[in-house]
């Protein structure tokens, strides 16, 4: 498999105001994301998740080290547009990333910037809206839609540019459970059916549990990295950095503290029920 994003010895600090020293976010960060994979990046507030995301399409440039996207060095200015075509970004607040006041016009915004001919834009827009299940809403005003719907519009706006990779920076933080489900289903489908690489930044454990791989950031380092089962079974490490595991795993962990030795790899209700059945069957 080829590499979609690779971060090599990245260091970054936000510049300080006046003469105060800046805030160091990364000192020596390394991460590779394989093409076509679905990676969740977990971490508490202020762990550098968003800063990392902004390096993926050259909104921020490394102070040291390199970030490569689809083989392109993000710090080369000539390649900027190529980098941004390659990696689409979806942000937390859906209201602040929708440009136009008609759904389809907003989805068209990206392709229009690329200078594509109008019939081709029309085709891309329709296709993108169908892929996120918002085609019927193409003539609606975005401000009248629900949070989950708005976020799907934002995703459509990104995939209409046909990127190889989508980076979502806490896309569900402002949504209700239904909206969160909608967004997550859409993203999972795009990854599975279209082979788009997905980097999902979140602090919801249950969302991260649905990814293929989970990277836990803390203090500017990837402290845990592996499949959801591998990562969430490290309950103690997660607790020590202010995170937690899904409740199903937490339940097994609490039982283990009472003297049981259950496996900590159950993420779904069914897995948890089966594990408990084995231990408690009369």
């Amino acid at each position: 498999m080829s590499t979609a994003i690779s971060v090599e010895h990245l260091s970054y600090s936000y510049p300080g105001v006046d003469d105060t020293p800046g805030t160091v976010v990364f000192e020596d960060m390394n991460l590779t994301v394989e093409s076509g994979s679905f990676v969740a990046v977990l971490g508490g507030n202020g762990c550098g998740k968003s800063t990392l995301a902004k390096h993926f399409n050259a909104i921020l440039l490394p102070c040291g080290g390199k970030v490569y996207v689809c083989g392109l060095d993000t710090s080369v200015e000539d390649k900027l547009m190529q980098v941004r075509r390659c990696v689409g970004m979806v942000f937390q607040n859906p209201d602040n990333q929708i440009v136009a006041n008609v759904v389809e016009e907003d989805v068209a915004f990206g392709p229009e910037n690329l200078g594509i001919a109008s019939p081709a834009i029309r085709q891309r827009v329709d296709q993108a809206l169908k892929q996120v299940g918002m085609y019927e809403y193409r003539e609606h005003a975005p401000h009248l839609l629900s949070g989950g719907q708005k976020q799907r519009i934002a995703i459509a706006g990104v995939i209409a540019m046909e990127p190889k990779c989508i980076v979502l920076d806490e896309p569900t933080a402002m949504l209700d459970p239904k909206g969160r489900r909608e967004v997550l289903e859409t993203v999972t489908r795009l990854n599975r059916e279209k082979g788009i690489t997905v980097v999902l930044i979140t602090h919801h454990m249950d969302e991260a549990a649905k990814a293929e791989r989970v990277v836990v950031l803390h203090g500017g380092k990837a402290v845990l990295d592996g499949t959801p089962k591998e990562v969430f079974s490290q309950v103690e490490t997660l607790h020590s950095i202010g995170l937690c595991a899904p409740d199903t795993t937490e339940l097994c962990f609490m039982l283990n503290q009472q003297g049981y030795s259950l496996e900590l790899t159950c993420l779904t209700d069914e897995e948890c029920a089966q594990t408990l059945m084995k231990a408690f069957k009369v």
Partner: peptide
């Protein structure tokens, strides 16, 4: 608690 991490 909307939008906060588990610790928050």
């Amino acid at each position: 608690t909307a939008g906060l991490d588990p610790e928050g």
